[in-house]
Simulated assay, not measured.
Amino acid sequence: MNRLIIAATLGVSLVLSGCAQQGLYGTSYSRSQVGQAQTVQYGSVEAVTPVVIEGRTDGIVGSGTGAVVGGIAGNQVGGGSGRTLATVVGAVAGGLVGQRIEKSATERQGQEVTIRLDSGRVISVVQEVQEGQYFQPGERVRVLGQGGSLKVTY
């Protein structure tokens, strides 16, 4: 029964951590961006550099779930005060492992796109690679802006 609880908790953790990160590519929008005016600039891609976008490290899902699973596993060891110590150590270790799993599971492939705008200004925008498609030097693109946030799209 305990193995079933641990397996279910880990499965839910991985699913939630994968869903928790909003897409960081040019065609994804947060709810707060919908209906908001954006500036539009046009330009040409000068260079594209592959980058890695770090995974989430807020630990809400990963370390929380890991701590629960680790605590349950630690509670199965020994008896008396030894069991209490094992539960605490298991919870701490599980939290750390869960946080690392969450970070790894939410890491994304990105691209730094350097663009020469039609105005002559050169900018660089980092965003997630969508469906394995990198921008290519020479391509014409739109740069959408809202506040300090920019997105590159076709």
Score class of each variant (00 low, 15 high):
V40C: 10
Q41S: 14
G43H: 08
S44Q: 14
V45P: 09
E46T: 11
A47W: 02
T49E: 13
T49Q: 14
P50N: 08
P50Y: 05
V51N: 04
V51S: 02
V52T: 13
V52W: 10
I53P: 05
I53G: 01
E54P: 13
E54I: 07
G55Q: 09
G55W: 08
R56T: 07
R56Q: 08
D58L: 06
D58T: 08
D58F: 05
I60H: 10
S63T: 05
S63W: 00
G64K: 09
T65N: 14
G66R: 03
A67S: 13
V69A: 06
V69E: 02
V69K: 00
G70R: 01
G70N: 06
G70T: 07
G71P: 06
I72E: 04
A73F: 06
A73V: 12
N75L: 10
N75K: 05
N75Y: 09
V77T: 10
G80N: 11
G80F: 08
G80Q: 09
G80T: 08
S81H: 13
S81T: 12
G82H: 14
G82A: 15
G82C: 13
G82K: 15
R83V: 05
T84R: 12
T84Y: 12
V92D: 03
V92I: 10
A93M: 13
G94D: 01
G94V: 04
G94M: 00
G95M: 02
V97P: 02
G98M: 05
Q99S: 02
R100Y: 03
E102N: 08
K103I: 05
A105G: 10
A105P: 08
E107N: 07
E107D: 09
G110F: 07
Q111T: 12
E112T: 15
E112Q: 13
